[in-house]
Design a protein around this nucleic acid. Sequence first.
DNA 1: TGAATAGTGTCTTTCAGACAATATGCC
DNA 2: GGCATATTGTCTGAAAGACACTATTCA
Lengths: 230, 230
Amino acid sequence: MSKIDSPKGTYNISKLNRPFVTVDILIFTIQDEELKTVLVKRKDLPFKEMWAIPGGFVKIDESLEEAATRELVEETGIKDVYLEQLFTFGDPKRDPRGRVITVSYFALILSKDLSLTASTDAKEVKLFSVNELPPLAFDHQKIIDYAVERLKNKIGYSNIVFGLLPKRFRLSDLQKVYEIILNKKLDKRNFRKKMLSLDLFKESGMEDRTGAHRPAMLYEFKKREVVFFD
Amino acid sequence: MSKIDSPKGTYNISKLNRPFVTVDILIFTIQDEELKTVLVKRKDLPFKEMWAIPGGFVKIDESLEEAATRELVEETGIKDVYLEQLFTFGDPKRDPRGRVITVSYFALILSKDLSLTASTDAKEVKLFSVNELPPLAFDHQKIIDYAVERLKNKIGYSNIVFGLLPKRFRLSDLQKVYEIILNKKLDKRNFRKKMLSLDLFKESGMEDRTGAHRPAMLYEFKKREVVFFD
DNA sequence: TGAATAGTGTCTTTCAGACAATATGCC
DNA sequence: GGCATATTGTCTGAAAGACACTATTCA
Protein backbone atom coordinates (compact mmCIF):
# COMPACT_ATOMS: atom_id res chain seq x y z
CA MET A 1 0.00 0.00 0.00
CA SER A 2 1.73 3.12 -1.13
CA LYS A 3 -0.99 5.23 -2.62
CA ILE A 4 -4.58 5.81 -1.81
CA ASP A 5 -7.02 7.60 -3.98
CA SER A 6 -9.67 10.10 -3.09
CA PRO A 7 -12.52 11.71 -4.97
CA LYS A 8 -10.11 14.46 -5.91
CA GLY A 9 -7.41 12.28 -7.35
CA THR A 10 -4.46 10.46 -5.87
CA TYR A 11 -2.56 11.22 -2.71
CA ASN A 12 0.81 10.02 -1.70
CA ILE A 13 0.34 8.42 1.68
CA SER A 14 3.31 10.17 3.18
CA LYS A 15 1.60 13.49 2.63
CA LEU A 16 -1.54 12.44 4.43
CA ASN A 17 -1.60 13.53 8.00
CA ARG A 18 -3.57 10.84 9.71
CA PRO A 19 -5.51 11.28 12.93
CA PHE A 20 -5.39 8.95 15.90
CA VAL A 21 -8.53 6.94 16.43
CA THR A 22 -9.67 5.77 19.83
CA VAL A 23 -12.72 4.08 21.25
CA ASP A 24 -14.24 5.32 24.47
CA ILE A 25 -16.61 3.06 26.28
CA LEU A 26 -19.30 4.21 28.64
CA ILE A 27 -19.97 1.46 31.11
CA PHE A 28 -23.27 2.04 32.86
CA THR A 29 -24.56 0.18 35.85
CA ILE A 30 -26.99 0.66 38.67
CA GLN A 31 -25.67 0.67 42.20
CA ASP A 32 -27.26 2.01 45.38
CA GLU A 33 -30.27 3.09 43.37
CA GLU A 34 -28.22 5.35 41.15
CA LEU A 35 -27.15 5.22 37.52
CA LYS A 36 -23.38 5.09 37.58
CA THR A 37 -20.61 5.01 35.05
CA VAL A 38 -17.02 3.79 35.18
CA LEU A 39 -14.29 6.42 35.10
CA VAL A 40 -10.52 6.10 35.27
CA LYS A 41 -8.11 8.60 36.74
CA ARG A 42 -5.56 9.85 34.24
CA LYS A 43 -1.93 9.42 35.17
CA ASP A 44 -0.44 11.54 32.40
CA LEU A 45 -0.75 14.92 30.86
CA PRO A 46 -2.91 16.42 29.62
CA PHE A 47 -5.69 16.46 32.19
CA LYS A 48 -3.39 14.59 34.57
CA GLU A 49 -5.20 13.38 37.69
CA MET A 50 -8.57 14.11 36.14
CA TRP A 51 -11.22 11.48 35.57
CA ALA A 52 -11.96 10.20 32.10
CA ILE A 53 -14.04 7.66 30.23
CA PRO A 54 -12.10 4.43 29.76
CA GLY A 55 -10.85 3.91 26.27
CA GLY A 56 -7.85 3.39 24.12
CA PHE A 57 -6.44 3.27 20.66
CA VAL A 58 -7.94 1.18 17.94
CA LYS A 59 -5.41 -1.35 16.78
CA ILE A 60 -4.70 -1.45 13.12
CA ASP A 61 -6.19 -4.88 12.58
CA GLU A 62 -9.18 -4.88 14.90
CA SER A 63 -12.65 -3.57 14.20
CA LEU A 64 -14.08 -0.70 16.22
CA GLU A 65 -16.39 -3.05 18.02
CA GLU A 66 -13.52 -5.42 18.76
CA ALA A 67 -11.57 -2.51 20.19
CA ALA A 68 -14.51 -1.53 22.38
CA THR A 69 -15.00 -5.12 23.51
CA ARG A 70 -11.32 -5.40 24.34
CA GLU A 71 -11.41 -2.21 26.36
CA LEU A 72 -14.45 -3.44 28.20
CA VAL A 73 -12.75 -6.70 29.11
CA GLU A 74 -9.63 -4.87 30.22
CA GLU A 75 -11.61 -2.54 32.48
CA THR A 76 -14.17 -4.93 33.86
CA GLY A 77 -13.31 -8.47 32.89
CA ILE A 78 -16.73 -8.77 31.30
CA LYS A 79 -17.45 -10.07 27.83
CA ASP A 80 -20.57 -10.99 25.92
CA VAL A 81 -22.48 -7.83 26.60
CA TYR A 82 -24.51 -5.60 24.36
CA LEU A 83 -22.36 -2.80 23.00
CA GLU A 84 -23.90 0.03 21.08
CA GLN A 85 -22.07 2.59 19.05
CA LEU A 86 -23.03 6.01 20.33
CA PHE A 87 -21.40 8.74 18.31
CA THR A 88 -18.07 9.75 16.86
CA PHE A 89 -16.52 12.88 18.27
CA GLY A 90 -13.89 14.50 16.12
CA ASP A 91 -13.41 18.12 16.95
CA PRO A 92 -9.81 18.97 16.00
CA LYS A 93 -9.30 20.70 19.33
CA ARG A 94 -10.82 18.06 21.58
CA ASP A 95 -7.39 16.68 22.50
CA PRO A 96 -4.59 19.20 23.04
CA ARG A 97 -1.98 16.64 21.99
CA GLY A 98 -3.19 16.42 18.43
CA ARG A 99 -5.91 15.06 16.26
CA VAL A 100 -7.73 12.30 18.07
CA ILE A 101 -11.06 11.08 16.79
CA THR A 102 -12.97 8.92 19.21
CA VAL A 103 -15.75 6.48 18.49
CA SER A 104 -17.86 6.08 21.61
CA TYR A 105 -19.74 2.98 22.68
CA PHE A 106 -21.90 2.21 25.65
CA ALA A 107 -22.57 -0.96 27.58
CA LEU A 108 -25.00 -1.84 30.35
CA ILE A 109 -23.62 -4.11 33.03
CA LEU A 110 -24.93 -5.69 36.17
CA SER A 111 -23.06 -4.06 39.02
CA LYS A 112 -22.38 -7.33 40.79
CA ASP A 113 -20.51 -8.54 37.70
CA LEU A 114 -18.26 -5.51 37.78
CA SER A 115 -14.91 -6.26 39.37
CA LEU A 116 -13.06 -3.06 38.79
CA THR A 117 -10.21 -4.16 40.99
CA ALA A 118 -9.57 -6.94 38.51
CA SER A 119 -7.81 -4.39 36.37
CA THR A 120 -4.18 -5.39 36.16
CA ASP A 121 -2.96 -1.83 36.04
CA ALA A 122 -2.40 0.19 39.14
CA LYS A 123 -4.93 2.56 37.71
CA GLU A 124 -7.60 4.14 39.78
CA VAL A 125 -10.97 3.05 38.47
CA LYS A 126 -14.22 4.08 40.08
CA LEU A 127 -17.95 4.22 39.65
CA PHE A 128 -19.54 7.65 39.70
CA SER A 129 -23.17 8.58 39.75
CA VAL A 130 -23.99 10.31 36.49
CA ASN A 131 -25.59 13.01 38.62
CA GLU A 132 -22.44 13.69 40.59
CA LEU A 133 -19.60 13.60 38.15
CA PRO A 134 -16.21 15.09 38.91
CA PRO A 135 -14.63 17.47 36.41
CA LEU A 136 -13.82 15.36 33.38
CA ALA A 137 -10.96 15.30 30.92
CA PHE A 138 -11.33 16.28 27.26
CA ASP A 139 -14.93 16.54 26.03
CA HIS A 140 -15.96 13.60 28.17
CA GLN A 141 -18.72 15.45 29.97
CA LYS A 142 -20.38 16.05 26.63
CA ILE A 143 -20.03 12.41 25.69
CA ILE A 144 -21.61 11.24 28.93
CA ASP A 145 -24.47 13.71 28.60
CA TYR A 146 -25.11 12.42 25.11
CA ALA A 147 -25.01 8.80 26.24
CA VAL A 148 -27.39 9.35 29.13
CA GLU A 149 -29.81 11.04 26.79
CA ARG A 150 -29.63 8.15 24.34
CA LEU A 151 -30.14 5.69 27.16
CA LYS A 152 -33.22 7.52 28.42
CA ASN A 153 -34.72 7.45 24.97
CA LYS A 154 -33.76 3.91 24.16
CA ILE A 155 -35.35 2.23 27.16
CA GLY A 156 -38.63 3.62 25.87
CA TYR A 157 -38.60 1.54 22.72
CA SER A 158 -36.23 -1.36 23.36
CA ASN A 159 -35.44 -3.97 25.95
CA ILE A 160 -31.80 -2.93 26.47
CA VAL A 161 -32.28 -2.75 30.22
CA PHE A 162 -31.85 -6.54 30.33
CA GLY A 163 -28.16 -5.76 30.79
CA LEU A 164 -28.97 -4.14 34.12
CA LEU A 165 -31.01 -7.04 35.47
CA PRO A 166 -30.05 -10.52 36.67
CA LYS A 167 -31.39 -13.65 35.00
CA ARG A 168 -34.47 -13.59 37.21
CA PHE A 169 -35.98 -10.43 38.55
CA ARG A 170 -39.14 -8.99 40.04
CA LEU A 171 -41.25 -6.54 38.09
CA SER A 172 -40.54 -4.08 40.88
CA ASP A 173 -36.82 -4.45 40.12
CA LEU A 174 -37.50 -3.66 36.50
CA GLN A 175 -39.58 -0.68 37.47
CA LYS A 176 -36.82 0.59 39.73
CA VAL A 177 -34.35 0.44 36.85
CA TYR A 178 -36.65 2.54 34.70
CA GLU A 179 -37.24 5.01 37.50
CA ILE A 180 -33.55 5.45 38.14
CA ILE A 181 -32.67 5.99 34.50
CA LEU A 182 -35.59 8.29 33.80
CA ASN A 183 -35.17 9.93 37.17
CA LYS A 184 -38.86 9.92 37.93
CA LYS A 185 -41.47 7.84 39.69
CA LEU A 186 -43.70 5.63 37.60
CA ASP A 187 -47.15 4.28 38.39
CA LYS A 188 -46.88 0.63 39.34
CA ARG A 189 -50.12 -0.52 37.73
CA ASN A 190 -49.55 1.24 34.45
CA PHE A 191 -45.93 0.14 34.33
CA ARG A 192 -46.76 -3.53 34.84
CA LYS A 193 -49.61 -3.40 32.38
CA LYS A 194 -47.37 -1.91 29.71
CA MET A 195 -44.39 -4.17 30.32
CA LEU A 196 -46.37 -7.38 30.41
CA SER A 197 -48.14 -6.43 27.20
CA LEU A 198 -44.79 -6.34 25.40
CA ASP A 199 -44.39 -10.09 25.68
CA LEU A 200 -40.68 -9.78 26.42
CA PHE A 201 -40.68 -11.72 29.67
CA LYS A 202 -41.91 -14.99 30.95
CA GLU A 203 -42.64 -16.18 34.45
CA SER A 204 -39.72 -18.18 35.73
CA GLY A 205 -41.91 -20.21 38.04
CA MET A 206 -39.78 -19.14 40.99
CA GLU A 207 -40.57 -16.64 43.67
CA ASP A 208 -38.58 -14.14 45.61
CA ARG A 209 -39.16 -14.78 49.31
CA THR A 210 -36.86 -12.25 50.86
CA GLY A 211 -38.49 -10.00 53.41
CA ALA A 212 -41.51 -10.24 55.63
CA HIS A 213 -44.11 -9.79 52.94
CA ARG A 214 -45.84 -11.45 50.08
CA PRO A 215 -43.40 -13.16 47.72
CA ALA A 216 -42.93 -11.78 44.22
CA MET A 217 -43.00 -13.72 41.00
CA LEU A 218 -39.60 -13.81 39.31
CA TYR A 219 -39.56 -13.15 35.58
CA GLU A 220 -36.94 -13.76 32.91
CA PHE A 221 -36.37 -12.07 29.59
CA LYS A 222 -37.40 -14.32 26.73
CA LYS A 223 -34.41 -13.07 24.76
CA ARG A 224 -31.30 -11.45 26.12
CA GLU A 225 -30.68 -9.60 22.91
CA VAL A 226 -31.89 -6.22 21.80
CA VAL A 227 -35.47 -6.07 20.61
CA PHE A 228 -37.29 -2.92 19.59
CA PHE A 229 -40.93 -2.34 20.36
CA ASP A 230 -43.53 0.37 19.81
CA MET B 1 3.49 16.51 20.09
CA SER B 2 5.79 13.58 20.29
CA LYS B 3 4.15 11.22 22.69
CA ILE B 4 0.61 10.29 23.42
CA ASP B 5 -0.56 8.29 26.36
CA SER B 6 -3.11 5.54 26.54
CA PRO B 7 -4.81 3.73 29.37
CA LYS B 8 -2.01 1.21 29.21
CA GLY B 9 0.85 3.67 29.53
CA THR B 10 2.76 5.72 27.02
CA TYR B 11 3.25 5.09 23.34
CA ASN B 12 5.79 6.58 21.07
CA ILE B 13 3.86 8.08 18.21
CA SER B 14 6.08 6.57 15.60
CA LYS B 15 5.04 3.12 16.74
CA LEU B 16 1.36 3.84 16.41
CA ASN B 17 -0.05 2.67 13.17
CA ARG B 18 -2.76 5.15 12.44
CA PRO B 19 -5.78 4.51 10.26
CA PHE B 20 -7.07 6.77 7.56
CA VAL B 21 -10.31 8.51 8.38
CA THR B 22 -12.83 9.52 5.75
CA VAL B 23 -16.31 10.93 5.71
CA ASP B 24 -18.91 9.49 3.38
CA ILE B 25 -21.98 11.54 2.70
CA LEU B 26 -25.29 10.11 1.64
CA ILE B 27 -27.13 12.74 -0.34
CA PHE B 28 -30.81 11.85 -0.59
CA THR B 29 -33.34 13.52 -2.78
CA ILE B 30 -36.66 12.77 -4.37
CA GLN B 31 -36.91 12.74 -8.13
CA ASP B 32 -39.54 11.18 -10.38
CA GLU B 33 -41.38 9.92 -7.33
CA GLU B 34 -38.42 7.90 -6.13
CA LEU B 35 -35.98 8.24 -3.27
CA LYS B 36 -32.60 8.66 -4.86
CA THR B 37 -29.05 9.03 -3.68
CA VAL B 38 -25.94 10.51 -5.26
CA LEU B 39 -23.21 8.11 -6.32
CA VAL B 40 -19.88 8.73 -8.01
CA LYS B 41 -18.09 6.39 -10.35
CA ARG B 42 -14.66 5.41 -9.12
CA LYS B 43 -11.76 6.12 -11.47
CA ASP B 44 -9.11 4.18 -9.58
CA LEU B 45 -8.47 0.81 -8.08
CA PRO B 46 -9.83 -0.81 -6.05
CA PHE B 47 -13.40 -1.12 -7.27
CA LYS B 48 -12.44 0.85 -10.37
CA GLU B 49 -15.47 1.82 -12.46
CA MET B 50 -17.84 0.88 -9.67
CA TRP B 51 -20.22 3.31 -8.05
CA ALA B 52 -19.58 4.62 -4.56
CA ILE B 53 -20.90 7.04 -1.99
CA PRO B 54 -19.19 10.42 -2.33
CA GLY B 55 -16.66 11.13 0.36
CA GLY B 56 -13.10 11.94 1.12
CA PHE B 57 -10.41 12.26 3.70
CA VAL B 58 -10.84 14.27 6.82
CA LYS B 59 -8.27 17.01 6.91
CA ILE B 60 -6.15 17.24 9.97
CA ASP B 61 -7.55 20.54 11.13
CA GLU B 62 -11.21 20.28 10.22
CA SER B 63 -13.99 18.70 12.23
CA LEU B 64 -15.89 15.69 10.94
CA GLU B 65 -18.90 17.83 10.23
CA GLU B 66 -16.78 20.39 8.44
CA ALA B 67 -15.36 17.62 6.31
CA ALA B 68 -18.84 16.35 5.47
CA THR B 69 -20.02 19.87 4.67
CA ARG B 70 -17.03 20.41 2.44
CA GLU B 71 -17.66 17.18 0.58
CA LEU B 72 -21.28 18.10 0.13
CA VAL B 73 -20.37 21.47 -1.35
CA GLU B 74 -17.82 19.86 -3.64
CA GLU B 75 -20.34 17.33 -4.93
CA THR B 76 -23.42 19.48 -5.16
CA GLY B 77 -22.53 23.12 -4.60
CA ILE B 78 -25.04 23.18 -1.78
CA LYS B 79 -24.40 24.50 1.70
CA ASP B 80 -26.53 25.24 4.73
CA VAL B 81 -28.30 21.91 4.86
CA TYR B 82 -29.06 19.62 7.72
CA LEU B 83 -26.34 17.01 8.08
CA GLU B 84 -26.73 14.12 10.44
CA GLN B 85 -24.03 11.75 11.55
CA LEU B 86 -25.16 8.26 10.73
CA PHE B 87 -22.65 5.68 11.87
CA THR B 88 -18.94 4.97 11.82
CA PHE B 89 -17.86 1.94 9.85
CA GLY B 90 -14.47 0.57 10.71
CA ASP B 91 -14.09 -3.01 9.71
CA PRO B 92 -10.37 -3.55 9.09
CA LYS B 93 -11.13 -5.30 5.82
CA ARG B 94 -13.62 -2.84 4.44
CA ASP B 95 -10.98 -1.22 2.23
CA PRO B 96 -8.44 -3.53 0.58
CA ARG B 97 -5.84 -0.76 0.49
CA GLY B 98 -5.50 -0.55 4.22
CA ARG B 99 -7.21 0.64 7.33
CA VAL B 100 -9.83 3.21 6.47
CA ILE B 101 -12.44 4.18 9.01
CA THR B 102 -15.33 6.13 7.62
CA VAL B 103 -17.75 8.37 9.44
CA SER B 104 -20.97 8.53 7.46
CA TYR B 105 -23.37 11.46 7.26
CA PHE B 106 -26.59 12.00 5.44
CA ALA B 107 -28.26 15.05 3.95
CA LEU B 108 -31.66 15.67 2.42
CA ILE B 109 -31.66 17.93 -0.60
CA LEU B 110 -34.25 19.32 -2.95
CA SER B 111 -33.58 17.74 -6.31
CA LYS B 112 -33.94 20.98 -8.21
CA ASP B 113 -31.09 22.45 -6.12
CA LEU B 114 -28.82 19.60 -7.13
CA SER B 115 -26.49 20.59 -9.92
CA LEU B 116 -24.33 17.53 -10.16
CA THR B 117 -22.74 18.79 -13.35
CA ALA B 118 -21.37 21.72 -11.36
CA SER B 119 -18.70 19.40 -10.10
CA THR B 120 -15.39 20.68 -11.39
CA ASP B 121 -13.93 17.22 -11.79
CA ALA B 122 -14.57 15.17 -14.87
CA LYS B 123 -16.07 12.63 -12.52
CA GLU B 124 -19.21 10.78 -13.32
CA VAL B 125 -21.83 11.63 -10.73
CA LYS B 126 -25.35 10.30 -10.87
CA LEU B 127 -28.57 9.89 -8.96
CA PHE B 128 -29.76 6.34 -8.38
CA SER B 129 -33.00 5.13 -6.95
CA VAL B 130 -32.29 3.44 -3.64
CA ASN B 131 -34.39 0.57 -4.94
CA GLU B 132 -32.28 0.07 -8.04
CA LEU B 133 -28.72 0.47 -6.98
CA PRO B 134 -25.84 -0.78 -9.08
CA PRO B 135 -23.17 -2.97 -7.47
CA LEU B 136 -21.39 -0.71 -5.02
CA ALA B 137 -17.77 -0.36 -3.95
CA PHE B 138 -16.55 -1.26 -0.47
CA ASP B 139 -19.29 -1.77 2.14
CA HIS B 140 -21.34 1.02 0.63
CA GLN B 141 -24.45 -1.08 0.10
CA LYS B 142 -24.54 -1.73 3.83
CA ILE B 143 -24.12 1.96 4.57
CA ILE B 144 -26.98 2.93 2.27
CA ASP B 145 -29.25 0.26 3.73
CA TYR B 146 -28.52 1.59 7.18
CA ALA B 147 -29.17 5.17 6.13
CA VAL B 148 -32.48 4.38 4.47
CA GLU B 149 -33.60 2.57 7.59
CA ARG B 150 -32.65 5.55 9.75
CA LEU B 151 -34.45 7.89 7.40
CA LYS B 152 -37.62 5.82 7.52
CA ASN B 153 -37.59 5.89 11.28
CA LYS B 154 -36.66 9.51 11.61
CA ILE B 155 -39.46 11.00 9.54
CA GLY B 156 -41.83 9.43 12.07
CA TYR B 157 -40.67 11.63 14.92
CA SER B 158 -39.01 14.65 13.35
CA ASN B 159 -39.55 17.22 10.65
CA ILE B 160 -36.37 16.42 8.70
CA VAL B 161 -38.31 16.09 5.47
CA PHE B 162 -38.25 19.86 5.18
CA GLY B 163 -35.01 19.32 3.26
CA LEU B 164 -36.98 17.55 0.56
CA LEU B 165 -39.60 20.25 0.11
CA PRO B 166 -39.49 23.73 -1.38
CA LYS B 167 -40.27 26.84 0.64
CA ARG B 168 -43.97 26.48 -0.12
CA PHE B 169 -45.64 23.17 -0.69
CA ARG B 170 -49.01 21.45 -0.76
CA LEU B 171 -49.96 18.97 1.90
CA SER B 172 -50.26 16.44 -0.90
CA ASP B 173 -46.59 17.09 -1.73
CA LEU B 174 -45.69 16.40 1.87
CA GLN B 175 -47.74 13.24 1.86
CA LYS B 176 -46.07 12.09 -1.33
CA VAL B 177 -42.64 12.50 0.29
CA TYR B 178 -43.71 10.34 3.20
CA GLU B 179 -45.20 7.74 0.90
CA ILE B 180 -42.07 7.53 -1.21
CA ILE B 181 -39.74 7.17 1.76
CA LEU B 182 -41.93 4.70 3.61
CA ASN B 183 -42.83 2.97 0.37
CA LYS B 184 -46.49 2.69 1.23
CA LYS B 185 -49.75 4.55 0.69
CA LEU B 186 -51.10 6.71 3.50
CA ASP B 187 -54.66 7.81 4.19
CA LYS B 188 -55.09 11.43 3.16
CA ARG B 189 -57.45 12.43 5.96
CA ASN B 190 -55.46 10.85 8.74
CA PHE B 191 -52.20 12.17 7.35
CA ARG B 192 -53.45 15.76 7.16
CA LYS B 193 -55.02 15.58 10.59
CA LYS B 194 -51.78 14.32 12.11
CA MET B 195 -49.49 16.73 10.31
CA LEU B 196 -51.56 19.81 10.99
CA SER B 197 -51.80 18.87 14.67
CA LEU B 198 -48.01 19.05 14.94
CA ASP B 199 -48.04 22.79 14.48
CA LEU B 200 -44.94 22.69 12.29
CA PHE B 201 -46.41 24.50 9.30
CA LYS B 202 -48.30 27.65 8.57
CA GLU B 203 -50.46 28.64 5.67
CA SER B 204 -48.48 30.77 3.27
CA GLY B 205 -51.58 32.55 2.01
CA MET B 206 -50.73 31.47 -1.52
CA GLU B 207 -52.36 28.82 -3.62
CA ASP B 208 -51.17 26.38 -6.18
CA ARG B 209 -53.24 26.80 -9.32
CA THR B 210 -51.57 24.33 -11.64
CA GLY B 211 -53.89 21.86 -13.25
CA ALA B 212 -57.57 21.75 -14.03
CA HIS B 213 -58.81 21.26 -10.51
CA ARG B 214 -59.39 22.98 -7.22
CA PRO B 215 -56.33 24.97 -6.11
CA ALA B 216 -54.35 23.79 -3.11
CA MET B 217 -53.26 25.86 -0.16
CA LEU B 218 -49.50 26.25 0.02
CA TYR B 219 -47.90 25.77 3.42
CA GLU B 220 -44.48 26.65 4.79
CA PHE B 221 -42.48 25.15 7.62
CA LYS B 222 -42.41 27.44 10.62
CA LYS B 223 -38.81 26.45 11.21
CA ARG B 224 -36.40 24.98 8.74
CA GLU B 225 -34.39 23.27 11.43
CA VAL B 226 -34.80 19.86 12.97
CA VAL B 227 -37.56 19.51 15.52
CA PHE B 228 -38.53 16.28 17.22
CA PHE B 229 -42.11 15.42 18.02
CA ASP B 230 -44.04 12.56 19.62
C1' DT C 1 -70.34 19.13 -17.39
C1' DG C 2 -66.58 16.14 -16.88
C1' DA C 3 -61.97 15.52 -15.09
C1' DA C 4 -58.85 16.11 -11.51
C1' DT C 5 -57.30 17.13 -7.11
C1' DA C 6 -58.46 19.66 -2.53
C1' DG C 7 -60.55 19.46 1.59
C1' DT C 8 -63.28 17.68 5.38
C1' DG C 9 -65.81 14.47 9.89
C1' DT C 10 -67.27 10.36 12.35
C1' DC C 11 -66.79 6.16 14.46
C1' DT C 12 -64.02 2.61 16.56
C1' DT C 13 -60.17 0.94 18.77
C1' DT C 14 -56.06 1.35 21.21
C1' DC C 15 -53.09 3.22 24.49
C1' DA C 16 -51.52 6.29 28.19
C1' DG C 17 -52.45 8.01 32.53
C1' DA C 18 -54.92 8.83 36.88
C1' DC C 19 -56.32 6.42 40.67
C1' DA C 20 -56.95 2.54 45.54
C1' DA C 21 -58.12 -1.65 47.40
C1' DT C 22 -57.10 -6.52 48.32
C1' DA C 23 -53.65 -10.53 48.74
C1' DT C 24 -49.98 -12.92 50.82
C1' DG C 25 -46.21 -14.11 53.55
C1' DC C 26 -43.23 -13.32 57.56
C1' DC C 27 -42.46 -11.90 62.17
C1' DG D 1 -52.39 -9.00 64.15
C1' DG D 2 -49.11 -5.83 62.13
C1' DC D 3 -45.96 -4.91 58.58
C1' DA D 4 -44.23 -4.83 54.05
C1' DT D 5 -44.51 -5.56 49.39
C1' DA D 6 -47.27 -7.96 45.49
C1' DT D 7 -50.95 -7.95 42.63
C1' DT D 8 -55.01 -6.37 40.32
C1' DG D 9 -59.12 -3.16 37.36
C1' DT D 10 -61.71 0.90 35.95
C1' DC D 11 -62.39 5.18 34.03
C1' DT D 12 -61.14 8.95 31.11
C1' DG D 13 -58.92 11.42 27.46
C1' DA D 14 -55.96 11.37 23.43
C1' DA D 15 -54.42 9.64 19.40
C1' DA D 16 -54.41 6.28 15.52
C1' DG D 17 -56.79 4.10 12.00
C1' DA D 18 -60.69 2.82 8.96
C1' DC D 19 -63.67 4.89 5.99
C1' DA D 20 -66.55 8.39 1.67
C1' DC D 21 -68.38 12.37 0.27
C1' DT D 22 -68.41 17.36 -1.11
C1' DA D 23 -65.81 21.51 -3.06
C1' DT D 24 -63.45 23.97 -6.51
C1' DT D 25 -61.17 24.98 -10.62
C1' DC D 26 -60.15 24.48 -15.52
C1' DA D 27 -60.74 22.71 -20.06
